Amino acid sequence: MRLFSWWIRRALGAAATLVGVSILVFLALRAMPGGFAETILGPFASEEQQRELAQRYGLDDSALAQYWLWLQAALGGDFGTSMISQEPVADELSSRLPVTGQLAVMAVLAAVFIGVPLGVLTAVRARADGGGTVGRLLSGLGVSLPEFVLGSIVVFLFSRYALGLSVGGYVPFGDDPAANLRAMILPAAVLSVFAISATARTTRDAVLNVLVEPYVTAAVARGESPAFIIRHHILRNAAAPVVVLITTITAYLLGGAIIVEYLFNLPGIGSYVVQAVGRRDYAVVQAGVLLAAAVFIVLNVVADLLVGLIDPRLGVTATGRQT
């Protein structure tokens, strides 16, 4: 019963959050200087031309009427039609989702398989002479290095010199897997630097907190090997904050790959939504922001459930509360 109540509260909270996000993005778009008619027709268009274009797309209605019509359609799965391409927004986003999704998945896998071991290593060697110093420096540099700086350097080097990987020229994975990976490795590597660094830093702090626990001291006193202690005593007890971070990073990567997509000319959701903002393509921006918010909410729920499986003391199944 407690778990059912938690699901009800979480569903109501998610619905309220999505409605709030939709209102904010709707109002923010219409508060920007230069509407759709002015942007498309240019500054020298007559008032009659602007009025005619606004009437064609229903932009002459009140903001409340426009929002209500859009919300009703969105609840039915219809996110409108792009005012630029005249294509359904849902189709446009679904065709670009595999690009952004693949980019995020590759970056998250790098964070898990590089960041977690690096964090464990720096924590275990924290008390050694100079141990973990290189790892701490690299993680600090990775967190503070802007993506556009690193991405620009990578684009220059691999465009100037023949280093075996291509910049741009995206090919769907189903058409040519090898060409797809050649085009996606570089942007995924640039995007993963922050994810790896943040994961390594969080893992290090979590492991250091676990190392001082009595059961770790008891395991050392029993003569258990360091590898056994790490696998059976440290990783699981330090996993909760790392899991939360990785799910949060996944949501961030799905919505924050804009710079990388622009630099490497990838037809992803991020670059598509940014272009729509410049063109005042309202339906595209509203649907894109709503999709990002929904992904973030879903991944937060997944994080709660995973934390509950890892440590039932922290899980919603044990307490009936959100952690």
Rank of each mutant, 00 (worst) to 15 (best):
V190D: 00
A240M: 08
V220I: 14
L235K: 07
T247R: 04
S192W: 01
Q286G: 10
T203A: 08
P241A: 14
A251Q: 01
V243D: 04
Q275W: 04
V216D: 04
F173L: 10
L208Q: 12
G278I: 06
A227G: 10
G174Q: 14
P241L: 13
A206Y: 01
T199R: 04
R201E: 08
V212K: 15
E261Y: 01
T248A: 11
P187A: 03
A189L: 13
F173P: 02
A162K: 00
V171P: 01
L290Q: 09
A283M: 13
A206I: 04
E224P: 04
V171G: 05
G288R: 01
Y272M: 14
V289F: 06
T203K: 02
T202P: 00
P214V: 01
Q286F: 06
A240H: 02
L253V: 06
G223M: 09
G270S: 09
S159A: 15
H233T: 14
Y170E: 05
Y215I: 12
Y161W: 15
P172M: 05
N180G: 06
D281V: 03
Y161K: 08
E224V: 07
A227Y: 06
P241Y: 10
N265E: 11
A283R: 07
A218F: 13
N209F: 09
V274K: 04
S159T: 15
N237Y: 07
Q275N: 15
S225F: 11
A221Y: 07
P177Q: 13
A276H: 05
V193R: 02
A206R: 01
E261H: 04
A179E: 02
A198Q: 10
A240N: 12
S271Q: 12
V289S: 04
E213Y: 12
R231G: 10
P177Y: 10
H233E: 14
I269H: 00
V220A: 11
V167D: 00
G174C: 10
G288C: 11
S159C: 14
T217L: 15
N180V: 05
S159Y: 09
P177L: 12
I258M: 10
R236W: 09
A162R: 03
A227H: 09
Q275C: 08
P177G: 14
M184C: 07
G256M: 09
E213W: 12
A239F: 00
P172E: 03
G278V: 07
G256Q: 08
H232T: 15
E261I: 01
V167M: 02
I259R: 00
T203H: 02
A238V: 05
S225A: 15
V285W: 02
I229G: 02
V285A: 03
A221E: 05
Q275P: 03
F173T: 00
R231H: 13
S166V: 11
G255N: 03
Y262W: 13
L211D: 05
D175Q: 15
A240D: 09
Y161I: 06
S192P: 07
L263G: 01
V210H: 08
Y170K: 09
T247E: 03
Y282H: 10
P187R: 01
L163N: 06
V277H: 05
V284P: 04
A227D: 07
L181P: 00
A218M: 13
A240S: 15
A240F: 04
L165T: 00
F173W: 09
A227E: 11
T247F: 13
